[in-house]
């Protein structure tokens, strides 16, 4: 299903700049929320752009939007500030991906909404 402008636009700060929030106890919220559990205050932060692979898979059967990329690795990445994100692991031989692998965040085109629709950008990670 195509992503339309309003939905895409709301996520830009998180997708482009890894904007997140951190509460007084050091808990990181990504994406930032409208309000925080227990009414806690949280400060805006930007997530670290380096981290390591916690777990991963290589997708062989993908939704149409991503099927040109198969087989592509996806992992859960623990960034150096402790936050975790799910991200594609690009520019790598899928057979070389491993738990503990160091990665860095890069800005990539995630999907194109057909030949005429939006170009949807965001983060992926690549080997450090």
């Amino acid at each position: 299903m195509k992503i339309r402008s309003p939905r895409y636009n709301r996520e830009i700060p998180q997708r482009y700049r890894l904007e997140a929030a951190k509460d007084v106890e050091g808990r990181i919220y990504f994406p930032p929320r409208v309000s925080y559990p227990g009414g806690e205050k949280a400060e805006p932060i930007r997530l670290s752009n380096r981290g390591k692979v916690i777990t991963y898979t290589v997708i062989h059967v993908a939704p149409a939007e991503y099927s040109d990329l198969t087989p592509y690795p996806v992992g859960i990445i623990e960034l150096d500030d402790g936050a975790r994100i799910t991200a594609q692991i690009a520019d790598v031989d899928p057979a070389k991906v491993h738990i503990g692998m160091r990665v860095k965040v890069e800005f990539r085109l995630l999907r194109a909404e057909g030949e005429e629709g939006l170009l949807c950008y965001g983060y992926k990670v690549v080997p450090e």
């Binding site: 996520e11 997708r15 990504f30 994406p31 916690i54 777990t55 991963y56 898979t57 997708i59 059967v61 993908a62 939704p63 939007e65 991503y66 990329l69 592509y72 996806v74 992992g75 859960i76 994100i85 799910t86 991200a87 594609q88 738990i99 995630l110 999907r111 949807c120 965001g122 983060y123 992926k124």
Partner: peptide, 22 residues
């Protein structure tokens, strides 16, 4: 999570595959 898992290309089998790997 459509915006933070699906958008990044992970599928349902992919999520369980990551659990399996871990």
């Amino acid at each position: 999570d459509t915006e933070y898992e699906g958008y990044n290309g992970v599928t349902f089998p992919g999520l369980y595959a990551m659990m399996a790997r871990a």
